[in-house]
Write a protein that binds this DNA or RNA. Sequence first.
DNA 1: GGTGTTGTTCGAGAGTTGTCGAACAAGGGT
DNA 2: ACCCTTGTTCGACAACTCTCGAACAACACC
Lengths: 101, 101
Amino acid sequence: MEPHEPDLTAVPVTAVLAALADDVRLQIVRALAEGGEAACGSFDFGVSKATRSHHLKVLREAGLTRTRAAGTSRLVRLRRDELDQRYPGLLDAVLTPRPPA
Amino acid sequence: MEPHEPDLTAVPVTAVLAALADDVRLQIVRALAEGGEAACGSFDFGVSKATRSHHLKVLREAGLTRTRAAGTSRLVRLRRDELDQRYPGLLDAVLTPRPPA
DNA sequence: GGTGTTGTTCGAGAGTTGTCGAACAAGGGT
DNA sequence: ACCCTTGTTCGACAACTCTCGAACAACACC
């Protein structure tokens, strides 16, 4: 079961947007944008590990993250450079905290 | 049944992203970004008028568009300025045509 | 008033998605 | 070898979404 990390040119923009259009996944992406590489287990946002694994898979298959094994853990990181190159401004616009008013 | 066009501060970013994460809706938004105000009926992207009406409702309720009546038609326009202010770079990133490679 | 155009709303159906617990797989430690 | 930790995968279930045709509403025009 290889990671299946697609080339960004092969991912439709709607798939990228759909991947970001979920609260849990957006929190994961925010954490990755701030903290760099992180283990899957470090994202405890009130969902089970099965659900977390599901969300990380969605992010990976939408081209947003890369995953590599490290012992019993898996380290996930954001494909920031590639994304900024293909969708300049998107991550910034989405990750910047919004003033509530 | 008033239009229900929310204040942008009341719409979670995930709702905006979800609204954009559909092919038909993205085509509508692209058309609006290029052509300015347009009647609902001008968006013929191979879906029935019921489906079109549904998508326009999703866009409106996500804060992406405003609608006003004009005779028997309804004119739709993109809330470009507001969106650019709250999510700078988002629309540009999403609407710019992507090189396939 | 009647007719036609333009949209919306109402089910309904098929498909997708988010969530979970349980079972499984792969490593590390003792 | 054994166990514990870390993740993935497998159903399953509820909720949502996209789609449609049909019925309805609003307006213009003859």
